[in-house]
Nucleic acid binder design. Structure first.
Lengths: 134, 134
DNA sequence: CTTGACTCCGTACCCTACTCCGGGGTTTAT
DNA sequence: ATAAACCCCGGAGTAGGGTACGGAGTCAAG
């Protein structure tokens, strides 16, 4: 424990082995150390990195955007002010998503509440709120 | 005003005309009324529906999931209890996304805060939080 | 009544993000 | 020491979500 094979890593993060290699090609994962045989060896922290990528995707970020998020950590080619500016832009993104999600939640909660669970759906109050969110 | 051409609709909702026709094919938009010439005529409410689809995509929902969300409104083939059950499942999805987004926001806020905006990024506190979110 | 912008439809093409394949070495458990 | 299971790499294939094309009809302004 401390060094994982690509298969162990993939299993731990619940992704396909091919996906791990794909992310490496795309620069989302650093090229890992290799054994004499050429086999990749990953530090166990890579699991959380993969999970981060996965969850970010579920939140509607593209791989390119995720790469940008990851790049906010260590980038010797940009000043701190630049990092700050980019982080703020991502934050704005996130705030927008949060607002939309809360609106969606509100509409659905309303639907679940109004709908007793009995009778045909034709009797269910129609949720126009869902479309008139903005 | 009250009836839009496909071009007017697309412009109002900020999407491509081809996308509108694509959504129609995929069942995300109902087939609209037609003029004698065959031209599509949309009620202006379709604009908000397109915007809903757009924002839902940005939140990481697939077109299929979005169709399911839209189907929660009017579905004569399922009882109210069923609608309720599905709405609750979507709500759970949304809660998960909200939780992840808040965690992400927290990490980025921390980064922006810690980073004064001066000096090289090497001096910037590294945001390990970003990866260790869960 | 003509001209430029718009629309129709079907088909083809594109990008993203994987996912699989195949021929070949490596590790590991028995 | 020999399978079974794993890993290597390059390259091809796939699904989802559009986007573009092209030939033909339509509409609105001048």
């Amino acid at each position: 424990m401390e060094s994982l094979s690509i298969g162990q890593l993939a299993k731990a993060a619940q992704v396909n082995v091919e996906t791990v290699r794909y992310y490496e090609r795309e620069g989302l994962l650093p090229r890992p150390a290799r054994r004499a045989s050429g086999y990749r060896r990953y530090p166990s922290a890579t699991v959380t990195r993969l999970q981060f990528i996965k969850r970010s995707k579920e939140l509607g970020f593209s791989l390119k955007e995720i790469a940008e998020l990851l790049a906010l950590r260590i980038d010797p080619h940009s000043g701190c002010a630049d990092v700050k500016r980019r982080a703020e832009a991502k934050l704005a993104d996130i705030e927008r998503k949060l607002t939309d999600l809360r609106r969606m939640r509100r509409a659905l909660t309303q639907l679940v509440h109004d709908c007793g669970g009995e009778g045909p759906s034709s009797a269910c109050p129609i949720l126009d709120t869902l479309e008139g969110l903005r």
